[in-house]
Design a protein around this nucleic acid. Structure first.
Length: 849
RNA sequence: GCGGACGUGGCGGAAUGGUAGACGCAGCGGACUUAAAAUCCGCUUGGGCAUCCCAGUGCGGGUUCGAGUCCCGCCGUCCGCACCA
């Protein structure tokens, strides 16, 4: 037997064995209980990132553990292969997005294989394959027929120089990332999915997802943003000829109606557009509002601007009150009715606006005993309180006043209570090439016509030109020209493609079932879904996870699946971080970054290898290419082996938190791999003799590690394995010790599968020719889990003074007597009178003097 | 702006309201070696430096026999915001 474990030789050998024996292929038939373990599939950017390694290692440990526990495990992998980076590569390097993507997939697949993940590669899919996106097009048509897809006008970021639509990411400080031109909002007719139809059930469904992180559920709840309020109609006083004589507003604070100081409408509001026709200043203001991008952060942090239309509306509760109507940039056309009434005293945005334009600010909710009608300061009061300065509402609390105003509006017929959601319908149109073509045809006679299903997939053309900005599908000479499937006359294909979030909204279904003639088989889906454990980054907490939940529910509504929630349990992992190394460039004061490979790190500083002079060690932040604080998983695998990097990914940091990468850490993991190898080599199947304490430690560890893995608390499982390893190393030879060595091997098998296989074969701990990959999780003797002695803490006035080792289950008064008899306790008491003794059996005695 | 989280030694972290710092990394001392690496043993929150005591979980209050843990108010850091994936 070798003295060292050589991963560079052994890793690949075992990976081939697993492949040849198809160890990780999920069988659709069979009687075993099923477990579907899924990690979010990667975008094929070119190289596996260390964050992927962390994500897939966690899933792999769980999948291998479940297999050891006797489950039929589905653990698939695929590629979220559409998206902008491929088009950027096409523009920058002149390569084809498809070729670039497929090459990346080949490279990344090889990288994943080198990490030894227990994946069922027979189910691999890439969303850019026509076999995949063709089925997606069919599903999209099904949803269209069910009324869940529609078209409407919506704003996009428009680059006026490049004449192209920009993603939010491509807008830097309000300018196009390539042209540098100031970005504008532009309206386009686009495709939408009716997710708002599902707002209530998506919200309610969260309640049953008790294995999801609380924070994710809360974020989704806030995103859906259910609120109860009042929709009511403002009558315009003396409306100009040809102008609407009223408009609707929605408010969640009808209680503050007497504090109204103005009304405001969005720049895109029909009334605003109508006014602009005869009012050049209004038109100019609306044009001004069109400048800038479409992100929420940008809209809400922009300075508030308004334009007084000169119109006045009548206060619904007191016709004597007239309120000015502004067009305001902070009112969103997408939420509510696109128009508001403003109560500055109790809404911060309204207050900012009112102070800027010198509008009245009237308090209507008392803040403690502050009840003056004149509201001072620049901070709105949004807390609870009694209504004041509000006529018939005076004295009520906020909730009662809300109900009262709604009841009055309904009885008088000028408004009604309404439930409103912040959630907006999902715009899925993208004016780009590298995505799923939207399977529709525009015909002058027939209108919008779905492509007949027997003509799917609508395949992307290969011959496209990226030499100029804009959508290559739109300017392709022939692709869009087709005959209308309805009337046969010349018509045009839709040239928008689908948001890549659509691709990732159903891939987990296709993994479970892959018939050629339809997207999936309903019964096969029922056998595997829901995913038992889904693992991915917290950055997907809202969008991807909400879209996937919506898509699954939509498919259920149209009768294609039986499951409503796709992911029974969700885990969101933290990022992998690394310190940064930099120097300040004297020419411009900007930092120049160096990669870890260019730097030598000492205990109290770091120097650049090239010149030996120090570099500044920066904060530990998320790995990113621009900061050069990245490490390449391939290099780590080449140096330390797959098991060392896997072990590092699981050690120390709790999986939901950030994991700081360090050279010292990975070296320590490499050393531990060898330490285990030496221990495994000491296995002696012929050893005799019992070691009761070690047996106990062994079974306690097995039970605890199982619990930790199931809770995904890998860092705790790792710590326990270290403890058991130390205990076994120190123990004298015995049958118990050999058994414990074999147990350690099985415990680390999901985490370090290559080492475990190599040792399993070398020491003959299992049947000849058997694999750890097919071994069972070690059994536990429940009798050994219970300790017969416990250590009890003895406190005097809450401070620890002594500890006692006593038989488990000792009587309260006996324990109390032992505690009082302690010298240390008596010294601490120093003759003081004992007033009270608190006894927590088997844990603690606290003596209060 | 809105929403969400996090804060414990030199570092990552552990701790059903009940012995704070398990376990790992780094560091220090020792053994082995011609030497180094590897390995093994020991120490390692701060202070008085003593098998004893005091202080200590971002800051300030509170609840409790007892608070890292619960409550209130701050401070700091990070993440998401609908066309990045």
């Amino acid at each position: 037997m070798n003295e060292r474990f050589d991963p560079s030789e052994a890793d690949g050998r075992w990976q081939r064995v697993w492949d040849e024996r198809q160890c990780f292929r999920a069988e659709d038939g069979g009687s075993k209980p099923r477990s579907y373990v899924l990690e979010m599939f990667p975008y094929p950017s070119g190289r596996i990132h260390i964050g992927h390694v962390r994500n897939y290692t966690m899933g792999d440990v769980l999948a291998r553990y479940k297999r050891m526990q006797g489950f039929e495990v589905l653990h698939p992998m695929g590629w979220d292969a559409f998206g902008m980076p491929a088009e950027n590569a096409a523009m920058e390097k002149g390569v084809h997005p498809g070729g670039w993507t497929r090459e990346n997939i080949a490279n990344m697949k090889a990288q994943l294989k080198r990490l030894g993940f227990a994946l069922d590669w027979s189910r691999e899919l890439a969303t850019c394959d026509p076999e995949y996106y063709g089925h997606e097009q069919a599903l999209f048509i099904d949803l269209y027929r069910a009324g869940l897809v529609y078209r409407k006008e919506s704003a996009v970021n428009w680059d006026p120089v490049d004449q192209t639509v920009l993603a939010n990411e491509q807008v830097i400080d309000g300018r196009g990332w390539r042209s540098g031109a100031l970005v504008e909002k532009r309206k386009l007719s686009q495709w939408f999915l009716r997710i708002t139809d599902f707002a209530e059930e998506l919200l309610e469904g969260l309640g049953a997802l008790d294995s999801w992180p609380e924070k994710v559920r809360l974020m989704q709840e806030n995103w859906i943003g259910k609120s109860q309020g009042l929709r009511f109609r403002f009558a315009v006083a003396d409306p100009p000829a040809g102008m609407a004589d009223s408009f609707e507003v929605f408010t969640t604070r009808p209680d503050t109606l007497f504090g109204a100081s103005f009304a405001a409408i969005a720049a895109e509001h029909p009334l605003a557009l109508a006014l602009a026709e005869n009012d050049p200043k209004a038109a100019a203001f609306i044009a001004e509002c069109r400048k800038g991008g479409t992100t929420a952060a940008e809209l809400e942090t922009a300075e508030k601007h308004g334009y007084d239309t000169g119109l006045r509306v009548v206060h619904p509760l007191d016709p004597a009150i007239r309120l000015p109507v502004y067009i305001a940039n902070f009112v969103l056309m997408d939420y509510g009715t696109g128009a508001i009434f403003a109560c500055p005293a109790h809404d911060q945005r309204d207050l900012d606006f009112a102070r800027k334009y010198g509008l009245p600010v009237r308090r209507v909710v008392a803040e403690g005993d502050k009840a003056d009608a004149v509201f001072l300061g620049d901070e709105a009061y949004t807390g609870p309180g009694r209504l004041v300065n509000s006529g018939f509402l005076d004295g009520m609390d906020v909730d009662a006043a809300k109900a009262m105003v709604i009841a009055r509006a309904e009885s008088e017929g000028w408004g009604q209570g309404e439930t409103q959601y912040r959630l907006r319908d999902w715009g899925v149109s993208r004016q780009r090439y590298w995505g799923t073509p939207i399977p529709f045809i525009h015909c002058e006679a027939c209108g919008v016509v779905a492509v007949p299903k027997d003509q799917l997939p609508v395949v992307l053309p290969e011959d496209v030109d990226f030499s100029t900005p804009g959508n290559p599908l739109l300017r392709h000479p022939t692709w869009k020209h087709v005959d209308c499937p309805g009337c046969g006359k010349p018509a045009q294909r839709e040239t928008d493609t689908l948001d890549t979030f659509v691709d990732s909204s159903w891939y987990f279904l296709r993994f479970a079932s892959q018939p050629a003639d339809k997207p999936f088989d309903r019964d096969e889906i029922a056998r595997w879904l829901p995913v038992e454990q889904y693992i991915g980054g917290i950055e997907h907490a809202i969008l991807h996870l909400l879209y996937a939940r919506f898509w699954t529910r939509a498919l259920k509504r149209i009768g294609l699946v039986d499951v409503a929630e796709p992911f029974a349990s969700l885990f969101t992992q933290g990022m992998v971080t690394h310190e940064t190394y930099s120097r300040t460039d004297p020419a411009n004061g900007q930092p120049v970054y160096f990669s870890p490979g260019e730097v030598e790190r000492g205990a109290d500083g770091a120097v650049l290898t090239a010149d030996g002079a120090p570099v500044e060690i920066g904060r530990v932040i998320k790995m990113s290419k621009s900061k050069k604080n990245v490490v390449d998983p391939d290099e780590i695998v080449a140096t330390y082996g797959a098991d060392a990097i896997r072990w590092f990914m699981l050690s120390d940091s709790p999986p939901e938190r950030d994991l700081p990468w360090s050279e010292a850490g990975i070296e320590g993991c490499g050393r531990f791999v060898q330490r285990l190898w030496r221990l495994f080599c000491q296995y002696d199947g012929a050893a005799t003799g019992e070691d009761k304490a070690l047996d106990r430690k062994r079974d306690q560890t097995v039970a605890a590690v199982a619990e930790d893995i199931e809770a995904l608390s890998f860092n705790k499982a790792v710590a326990r394995i270290y403890e058991l390893t130390s205990a076994v190393e120190k123990a004298a030879p015995s049958a118990s010790r050999s058994q414990a060595i074999r147990t350690v091997l099985l415990l680390v098998a999901p985490m370090m599968p290559h080492l475990a296989e190599e040792a399993w074969a070398a020491i003959g701990a299992g049947d000849p020719g058997s694999l750890v990959a097919e071994a069972a999780w070690p059994p536990v003797d429940p009798a050994l889990l219970v300790e017969d002695e416990v250590t009890v803490a003895v406190q005097v006035k809450g401070k620890l003074r002594d500890t006692l080792t006593v038989a488990k289950g000792i009587a309260r008064d006996e324990l109390e007597a032992l505690a009082l008899a302690s010298d240390k306790v008596q010294r601490a008491l120093d003759g003081a009178e004992v007033k009270k003794v608190i006894v927590v059996p088997d844990r603690l005695v606290n003596i209060v003097a």
